[in-house]
Design a protein around this nucleic acid. Sequence first.
RNA 1: GCAGCCGGACAGUCUGUCGCUGGCGACUUAAUGACUGGUCAUUCACGUGAUUUUGGCAGCAAGUCGAAAGAGGAACGUCCGGGCAGCAUAGGGCAACCCACUUCCUAAUAUAGAAGCAGUCCGCAAGGGUUGAGUAAUGCAGAAGAAAAUAACAACAGACGGGGCAUCCAUGCUGAUUCUCUGAAUGAGCGUGAUUGUCACGGCUGAAAUGGUGAGAAGGUGAGGUAAGAGCUCACCAGCGGCAUGGUGACAUGUCGGCUGUGCAUCUUGGGUGCUGCAAGUUCAUGUAAACCACCGCCACGAGGGUAGCCCGCCCGAUUGUUCGGUGGAGGGUAGAACGCUUGAGCCAUGGGGUGACUCAUGGAGUAGAUAAAUGACAGACAUGCAUCACUGUACGUUGUGUAAACCACAUAGCACAAAUGCACACAGAACCCGGCUUACAGCCCGACUGCUUUC
Length: 140
Amino acid sequence: MIVNCQLKKSERLTSQLVIEKLFAGGNASMAAFPLRIVYMKMEKDGGDGKNGNQVGKPPVSILVSVPKKRFRHAVDRNRMKRLIRETYRLNKHILWDALEGKDYRLALAFVCITDTLPTFYAVQKSMKKALIRITERLDL
RNA sequence: GCAGCCGGACAGUCUGUCGCUGGCGACUUAAUGACUGGUCAUUCACGUGAUUUUGGCAGCAAGUCGAAAGAGGAACGUCCGGGCAGCAUAGGGCAACCCACUUCCUAAUAUAGAAGCAGUCCGCAAGGGUUGAGUAAUGCAGAAGAAAAUAACAACAGACGGGGCAUCCAUGCUGAUUCUCUGAAUGAGCGUGAUUGUCACGGCUGAAAUGGUGAGAAGGUGAGGUAAGAGCUCACCAGCGGCAUGGUGACAUGUCGGCUGUGCAUCUUGGGUGCUGCAAGUUCAUGUAAACCACCGCCACGAGGGUAGCCCGCCCGAUUGUUCGGUGGAGGGUAGAACGCUUGAGCCAUGGGGUGACUCAUGGAGUAGAUAAAUGACAGACAUGCAUCACUGUACGUUGUGUAAACCACAUAGCACAAAUGCACACAGAACCCGGCUUACAGCCCGACUGCUUUC
């Protein structure tokens, strides 16, 4: 099996509307230190109809947030974001496989909730755990 | 060699695997567009219309592949200046605010830069920090201090007044001793008056030297001088003013003169200041009020409003309107896209000019442009720095053994270095673009200079 390890811009969550809806409350969230994850199911998006081609949006859109309160320097914030992005990129197949054939998409937000820079492996471990837990909850 | 000081350069490198961003090139899918060809209808024909996948072209968007590119010296701070953009009218006066040693550099009038000047503080020094228009007038300056500016509280000096003590003179009284005894002499005590000295007191005068203050005390130090003292006089030093010389200048040096308080504010002089910042601003799509803009008509010729503090000036502007009427545009808000956006007062090299900031000439290289915000993640190797000798290696070297004896071999207490081991590897992330500044920072290199030390 070829594991897709890419992370294009189209998989990033950029719409202000969706982001506000995601954080407005009422959506499921879980903590997997050093991360907090908020996720939301979305319509599979029959398209806005304007440009008729629905080549298919990816099944998951993500967003990474590292509050300035946690890391004062931009350098540290960038480092943390890169770690989160990288671990998601390497493990997103867990989620993608579970969403095969489902009729909805997912919006995911990763929020950093630690004050000290963790190692790559610590982030990867909790990322794997979190993604597995999400796939379990989706079926409920 | 060690320590320091100033200026400048750099601030990791390579490999593997997996990724990100925007260009470029090729290919695939391909809405759609105009063209071309075919067919049909109509027409004498040109042409027009319908339809069609003949052909290539353009192409929203997506994907695959390829080859390159992709954070800093401070990208930080946002403390200044400029470009650029829009709003505007910015014209005059006043007010308000900002700046202030000199000369220069620059796009830049700065609280920036360069080279200097003067005062002051730190350092043995190389150097570093800090301050810098004027002071005519007015005001303020403590719970300190005698006093904060035409000084007199204490202490000092002078003469005076009354007083105490001492001295000395005159005189009166008292009593004593001696003698030549109605007297004389001697010395004593008390009183009165005057003299001189001294002590304290009182007010007066002189003086500005002394004083536990203070940021600042009537220029400083020394000598003369004086009743005591004083720039009262003199010498040196500091300040101020005139003159001369040197310097573009701030100033410096010399000389002459008189005799001199500190800080702050107001003030005076000279120079300057429109506002908002790329979320500026422009365009497209979506799309709409009675808000906004333009034009026309009616009315009207100055009521009122605007001009970011006031006045003048300027601009808008009418018949009572909760909207004068009509036509056109389309703002705000919401969710998007594109431009602005990266070739720029840019960078590098060489040569010329300048102490320097900088500048002139010639030549050369070169696509960071993200936007919930790319420029990375993981692993390994190397480089660099520090520490150490437990391991490994090497040099020195002690002792022992082998040997006839060793400068040879082996083992080894010790000691040093490393190619050995361990640890560390900073500060920090573009957001319209430049210039300057501040702040943070592991290391390392280059150059100038200073102090100490060693050798010749």
